[in-house]
Design a protein around this nucleic acid. Sequence first.
DNA 1: TTGTACGCGTTATCAA
DNA 2: TTGATAACGCGTACAA
Lengths: 336, 336
Amino acid sequence: MARKTIDDVAALAGVSIKTVSRVMNFEKGVRPATRERVEAAMAELNYQPSLPARSLAGGRSNLIGLVYENPSANYVFNVQSGAIAKCRDLGIRLFLQSCNDLGDRLIEEVLAVVDQTHVDGLVITPPVSANHELIRSLDARGVTFVRMAPDDFIHGSPVVEMDDEAAAREMTAYLLALGHRRIGFIAGRPDHYSSRLRLKGFREEMRAWGIDPDSECVEQGVNDHQSGLEATRRMLANSSRPTAIFASNDDMAAGAIVAAHELGVDIPDQLSIAGFDDTQVAGIVWPTLTTIHQPVYDMAFAATGLLIDLIKGLEVPPVTKLGYHMVRRASTAPPA
Amino acid sequence: MARKTIDDVAALAGVSIKTVSRVMNFEKGVRPATRERVEAAMAELNYQPSLPARSLAGGRSNLIGLVYENPSANYVFNVQSGAIAKCRDLGIRLFLQSCNDLGDRLIEEVLAVVDQTHVDGLVITPPVSANHELIRSLDARGVTFVRMAPDDFIHGSPVVEMDDEAAAREMTAYLLALGHRRIGFIAGRPDHYSSRLRLKGFREEMRAWGIDPDSECVEQGVNDHQSGLEATRRMLANSSRPTAIFASNDDMAAGAIVAAHELGVDIPDQLSIAGFDDTQVAGIVWPTLTTIHQPVYDMAFAATGLLIDLIKGLEVPPVTKLGYHMVRRASTAPPA
DNA sequence: TTGTACGCGTTATCAA
DNA sequence: TTGATAACGCGTACAA
């Protein structure tokens, strides 16, 4: 079955293609009666405008790209869901650009996709959003983009973020208020900006409570389950065990839970464990995990909205900060 | 910076645009020396062909669509990863079509995307692959597609699947061989074909071992953690508790683990638990989960490859069956 | 308020 | 082996 074109619609409605175009694009200056005739014709033919044709003819492709790199299935899924939801509202199509396993071909690939697909702009999520070389290259190409949680403001593009540092402080304060004093921290990958902020928040709050920095045991992890498990084993082998462990993300916290189970350490009676992100695992492990809810979906939704506004030429705020909140579940309690 | 076009390349190479086109598309009948000149020009200009233009002019868009609907973040992530990997190999771009939350607008939406984007074909994953009405509509539109794990072969399109029934039989046999006789089964959503196959495999193997069907307690779940938790609570409240529980997927098995922990039932000494899928959670829960590895990534990779062959007009096998394997972890053992 | 004619960057036809 | 030129389906000047 041949694809319906604007000519078919114009013929059926008895107008020129330009008028059909006007109706499609909600331009003013079309007589209501004419508009209705055209709309009826479009409906009858089940007409769908050709994106490639619009893209070629007009400057705009009505296509935007979402650029991401691994973090985790849940993170990617939430980011995508947020972006998809916003696009669906506005009739924009989303092009996904996964940079997983791309290595140093990343920049080249992203630029190629931009040129090939004619996307109108990009939403860039961490850690790619902190790739300065890419940002500079995109800027040189004149690409419009919005970044999620970058580690700088070197570029004038809008930024959407949450306050990782304040959130980490809040969680730390919560553990301190429960009565914990020896609190272990499992840090995330130092090349992720949010990891650094979370560690900073932890340290500052500890200091604010006058805790001796020596009783702060900070172990380095790499954001995955295994590294959380190993870091916790090291901490629990220590003579002065912590009574609480705060992991920089949920996956590592889930690893910490396993390490405690292995050693027969009861959670939360003998050891409190807290995570960060509020991903799916937080509700699946036993005991369920106290954590910080990171509004990933909302951040992607907001970033996508900003990008679309930007493309339309609207003014948008340079920084959008979204709220987090603590989710208290079963893995934390006062020390024995 | 203006986008480079085929004219720029042609001018620099001192040939016509048609020749550049020939080189790009690996058509034969171009003198090697000419080809090299053109390739050098393309490289020098960092030329990227315009997808919309190719799509309009030629019949092909070099774009394929991946259609999916929720299942889970991990499932979607793996499917995407497989499809992306295959596309990357072949210079094809992937368009994602999430049908989550689309309800009865699903068919309309998918058809609209096909018409608008001019994708050359679709890879359709379950449960959408079993949506007969959609399949019929796509067929009527003459759309090329490959289905993953559909529940029928009503349509002649190629199918990629794994043998859920045999896998479930294998897991059941494993539990029986360990010495279990009272085995509980947590069934998945009956509207998912694979759920029905897994239940069938469980039942057949039990029967093959001459187990009295009354000692088969089958509880209905809906594929999520919570339903696995509740189903297990019901089973464990029973006077004749099972000594092993086989859940139709990992999420429900993770729920079963929590239920056992809540009641102080030791895993695996007092209760063995097995899952299905080998998703990320299987390695994160404690104890780690014995499960069946479902080759989701490979299935998507294969399906994408088949689709691309199909688009090229090649012959492809009607059914591609991929292998599974059992992953023995810590959640199963002989009964006490 | 509506229509005509041209151009967007490719591929395809056919001639050279 | 190559090239001129006409599509592809739509947006945009500009004219009516």
